[in-house]
Design a protein around this nucleic acid. Structure first.
Lengths: 195, 195, 195, 195
DNA sequence: CATGAATGAGAGTTCATTCAT
DNA sequence: GATGAATGAACTCTCATTCAT
């Protein structure tokens, strides 16, 4: 596959992403993607063989993009509290914009593709986020910013709350105020408890 | 509609429930339900006009059943701590059994049917659960069982964690141990903080 | 499936037969049959699920029809020589009319469906024809009509010649004269050798 | 067309032959051949324009190869009986090996390409085989090896039996024993009748 | 000469939905 | 009320064939 094909492949994935954002995972057909990309029916099959495959590649792209974003924000020399707040704000932004989010599609995909642990990107992401959160809290505790006597438990708690908010945002709706309240509750618990 | 029709209607809903449990919401077709019920294609349309309508009725049935269960456990005269634990154990049971659960189907349904607040049964349930949880915590605080200075925040936090666990159970998988840890974390936070 | 469906099923098979006669087996698509029957795309699938299945049913019908024809001619009280000639004439008629013959389709079908002996209708037919031919020759020998010292071998020889003529008729073409010559050769060999 | 092109042409035909041997004629697509040859899609079209054309060229090659084989065996100074037996043994070998045989593909090709006599290679081959067989029998009769009062009829009979065996081998299957029986029957008839 | 990406027609198959009985 | 045959739209996937490079 030449240089050109790589470009086109990327173009398809980017276009398909929009389709998944709009329609979730299950409702998307090869035809939808063909039409969105404005290519021929057979043309798509030259690059991908199923919506499932396409979606997995889209998620792969997404993860890379996310990682880039993440590392960008970490570069700065900031306190644990700053970083935590930054992270939560990022999550809030993600939560509130229904548009341009793969969240729903990802859930749908994993509903019907219960991948074994190793291949389950979602699981790996969740676990690694918990790990990072734990380190962050620990470092906050170390320099006196936070008070917490079960950093691992707290990290998990925060991540589950975020997951809860995420799924609620996609199903019952969540107001910005509600998200703020939860963030405030989390931060307060970490900082205030020492008093 | 005669007595007989009501029976049949109920029969269809109960059978359809099994189908939704097994296949989620989107993948279920009218044909699936017709076949599961062993009735005629046209026959189904005399009672319902779409899988969406059927699913909503199934959820209605479900809610009533849940309420019954709920009130049963509340009957007993128990302390706030007992009730909270009972409730969390119930949630745990629900979480861990993948079988016989509408959870996934419900999420799928709300993904593509973002109902306005009033009709959004899921939202009403969530909100009412938060309310009940808040009352429960308040009563626990009142009689010295719990320590908590933001009962509403805590109630919401607990419910979001449960939602988080629920969606994780359906996508990345959750071990019994992991659920126990979260329950322990919640209970500990409520009781231990007073020290 | 009601009375009506049976009629329609039969109608489809009869119509499909014409299509197979015209196009052989491989080139026939479900669409061809749908169009020939002037029914809907989905309609055909209510009765059959593939061209292969349809073709097998057509062959089943055919066999029954053949058997009927066969027994009709045997009814008469005729000498072995008469019956043999009658049979060969019947084969000749079959051979020469390209139109209205499933021969080619049958060959094509068995090319790609090398069925195990038991299910191989073609094999069963061939073997039973050999048996019948053998009996016929034996009875002819018994009453002095024929001379032959290896009835089984002769019966097989005749059947292979007929098969050879059949495939030649479908590929390189066979003139009526050529068929006559072969029939004459067979009959002569049976009768003249006694002199 | 340069030397190089001729080589490539030959390479394509030889590779295509294998494909036809494996899949018959109809099921073979240009794509199959392109992939087997590991050349580009467009490249194949520079040399041939359809599977049909390719197949005809493959058959042409085949015939030349066969002729070479044939003349090789005839070179030796042998009796008519020897040559006949040699020929029948050769046919038997051909019959029994399903692998590496174009037989099926050839039948399929002629099913849908009822070429006029002149271009019908298969017909020319059959007719010439009959001629040669006739000469052979005549020479055998002349030197007292065989007894036969209708050499042409006998030659045709033998060739039709072989055709019959060939098509049976491809459809209902033929055991080595069965072929032996037929060969024995043929030879016996030629030699024994003189007694 | 050679490549291989691209096209689009066409085959298979499944279902929601209707309607005569 | 109830049936289930029938329809037709929609999707998936495969190839012959072309054409810019």
């Amino acid at each position: 596959m030449g240089e050109k094909s790589i470009q086109k492949r990327k173009y398809i994935l980017e276009t398909a992403r929009k389709v998944f954002v709009e329609k979730g995972f299950k409702r998307v057909t090869m035809k939808d993607i063909v039409e969105a990309c404005d290519i021929s029916r057979g043309g798509l099959y030259l690059y991908f063989e199923s919506t499932s495959q396409i979606f997995q590649e889209v998620m792969k792209m997404e993860t890379q993009a996310d990682d880039d974003l993440f590392s960008d924000s970490i570069k700065e020399d900031a306190t644990a509290g700053d970083i935590l707040l930054l992270f939560l704000m990022e999550q809030k932004k993600e939560l509130l914009r229904k548009q341009d989010t793969l969240t729903q599609a990802i859930y749908e995909f994993y509903f019907e593709n219960q991948l074994p642990k190793k291949e389950n990107r979602l699981k790996r992401q969740f676990d690694s986020a918990v790990k990072i959160m734990e380190k962050l809290i620990e470092s906050g505790v170390a320099n006196g910013e936070f008070y917490c006597d079960d950093c691992a438990g707290c990290a998990r708690n925060i991540m589950y709350v975020l997951e809860g908010l995420k799924i609620c945002a996609q199903t019952i709706g969540v107001s910005e105020e509600a998200v703020n309240r939860e963030i405030y509750y989390i931060v307060k618990n970490l900082s205030a408890e020492g008093e």
